[in-house]
Every structure is written in C-alpha cells, then in structure tokens.
C-alpha cells in the first residue's frame, strides 16, 4: 500500500515539474502510440515477416527451412508467373485509360446537365456500392452461352454466332475487365466532378470573351487544371487494377483465373499458392514481387506530383 502511494507521489512530482508543452507532447504521443502500435503489429511486422518467409520453404505443416533465393529463381522460371505478370499489366494498361476516359467524358457532360443531375450521378455511383463478388456473379451469368446467357441470347436472336466470352483465352480478360471498369466508374466520376467544380468559373468566362473554342478551352484550361485530380485517379485506379481479385475469382470459380490462366492476376496466383497449395514460402516471394511493383509505381507517381 505504502509503496504504491510512494510511487504516485514520485510520478506526480515528475508530472508537475513538466512544462505545459512537454505534457501536451506526451499526451499527443500517448494517443498516437495506439494507431502506431496497431500499424507496426498488424501491417509492418507481417510485411517484414513476408520478406523472411520468401527465403524459406514453409508449408504451414512443415517447419520452415532457409532456402536462399530458391523461391525467386523458381518464380523467374515459372511460365505461369510470366503469364500472370502479363495479365496483371493488361488489367492495368487497359483498365486505367479506358475507365478514366469514360469517366471523364461522363463527368464532363454530366457537369453541364442540370436536369436530374443528382439522380443521374447517383445511378453512376450505384455500381461502386455493390459488392464485387455479387456483381461478378451477375456478369458471370450474362456471359453464359445460350440458353441462359443474356448477351448470347441477344446475339443469337440477331443471327450472330454466340461468343465464348469467359470460355475463351482471348475474350476472357476483357470480359472480366468490363464489370471491373464499370464498377469503378461511379467513384471516378464523382472525383472528376469535384475537380471540374473546383476550376474557377472566371477562367472560362475570360476564355469565352477572348473567343476560344470549346475544344481549346478543354485542352488549355480544363485538362491542365484537372491534373491533380487526374494524377490521383491514375494512381488510385492503377493500384486497384494491379490488385484486382474479387471480380476475377468470382466470375470463374470453377476454373479460377479463367481458361488456361487467361485472366489470372498476380494476387490470385498468390492466393492459390498460399491457401490452396500451402506453399507459403513461394507465395511470400510472389507477394514481395507485387510489393516492389506497387512501390515502384507509387514512387513514379510521387515524382509526377513533384514535377507539378
């Protein structure tokens, strides 16, 4: 009892001797420590753990043994990895520009529409609120062959030969990408609209008085002033497409990753290696590669931001 009291006095003494600024700093760090600790334990520590795992042959049931760069060597020699790598970048280089082009066009014209503006905006935003898994299942049925596939039923009624879509090595990836692009549109449109609204009206008025054409206004004023918005969306959607998973997995669960891996992205390969084959070490090596790719792209983005 007396020991505790003594400590309280000592602590109280130390506390009362501190300046207000010091106390504020202690409080601030006290509060910051909670999320910081959370991040260290939940995010950073597992990340470093993944680096360590990537040089072992851990399989959950068997103890891990150090294998050096064996996993990375296997990865480079794995034909599936290169296919998956190609797919992942196809999602990126097709998905990002297409989705940005569509969403910008929609936002650009929607910005001028006054009639039912909020309603139309809400309609565009709706898919973004839908669970990706549920959406993938609906599209999965759209793409089915006759007699149940809506798209093929329409094609067949016009006498056009039915398309294999998800059952084709060439059509499957665009078929998976379409709902992913569609789902992201709502969000991008909202951000573009906010960006467009942020451009001062006076610039446009001045340009119109000077007799600039609409095309010139778009090129000289709107797009340059939208650059911060554009950079944000490019980065945001790039990371999204690089990490695409739910749509791909759910649209083809009975042959995950599409026929002959034609739609399999890196994340799905990691998932299968880890939680279906239980090759944790190999999966960790794939994760490290994905981490590096995302890091490089993020650094490039920071560079562009600074150039502004």
């Amino acid at each position: 009892m007396s020991v505790i009291a003594h400590q309280q006095v000592a602590a109280g003494g130390l506390w009362s001797r501190m300046s207000l600024g010091q106390k504020q700093r202690i409080w601030a760090w006290g509060f910051l420590a909670v999320p910081l600790l959370f991040y260290v334990v939940i995010r950073f520590w597992p990340t470093f753990q993944a680096f360590y795992l990537s040089v072992t042959d851990w399989t959950i049931t068997r103890p891990a043994a150090f294998v050096g760069l064996e996993n990375y060597k296997r990865l480079l020699a794995d034909a599936l990895f290169w296919q998956v790598f190609r797919n992942t970048f196809l999602y990126l280089i097709l998905g990002t520009p297409i989705s940005l082009l569509i969403s910008f066009t929609v936002a650009y014209y929607l910005d001028r529409v006054r009639f039912m503006h909020s309603f139309i905006r809400a309609l565009y935003f709706l898919p973004f609120l839908t669970t990706a898994a549920a959406m993938a299942w609906v599209w999965r049925w759209f793409y089915q062959p006759v007699p149940i596939g809506v798209i093929n039923d329409i094609l067949a009624s016009f006498g056009i030969p039915q398309q294999p879509f998800l059952r084709s090595t060439t059509q499957a990836l665009p078929a998976v990408l379409a709902p992913a692009v569609w789902a992201g549109l709502g969000f991008q449109i909202i951000i573009f609209l906010a960006g467009l609204r942020a451009i001062p009206v006076t610039y446009y008025e001045a340009a119109r008085i000077d007799g600039l054409s609409e095309g010139a206004i778009l090129r000289r004023i709107t797009i340059p002033l939208l650059k911060p918005t554009l950079v944000f969306l490019v980065v945001f959607s790039s990371i999204g497409f690089l990490r695409i998973f739910d749509q791909v997995y759910n649209i083809n669960t009975n042959d995950p990753g599409g026929p002959l891996n034609s739609t399999k992205p890196l994340v799905l390969m990691i998932y299968q290696t880890a939680f279906s084959s239980y090759e944790m070490g190999y999966a960790a090596a794939q994760t490290v590669v994905l981490f590096v790719i995302l890091l490089v792209i993020s650094l490039v983005q920071l560079r562009i931001m600074r150039d502004r």
Partner: peptide
C-alpha cells in the same frame, strides 16, 4: 455437350 454450358 459443351464445357461451360449452363456454367456447371
């Protein structure tokens, strides 16, 4: 028959 007919 056809693989993928009726999905499963």
């Amino acid at each position: 028959g056809q693989t993928g007919f009726m999905d499963e």
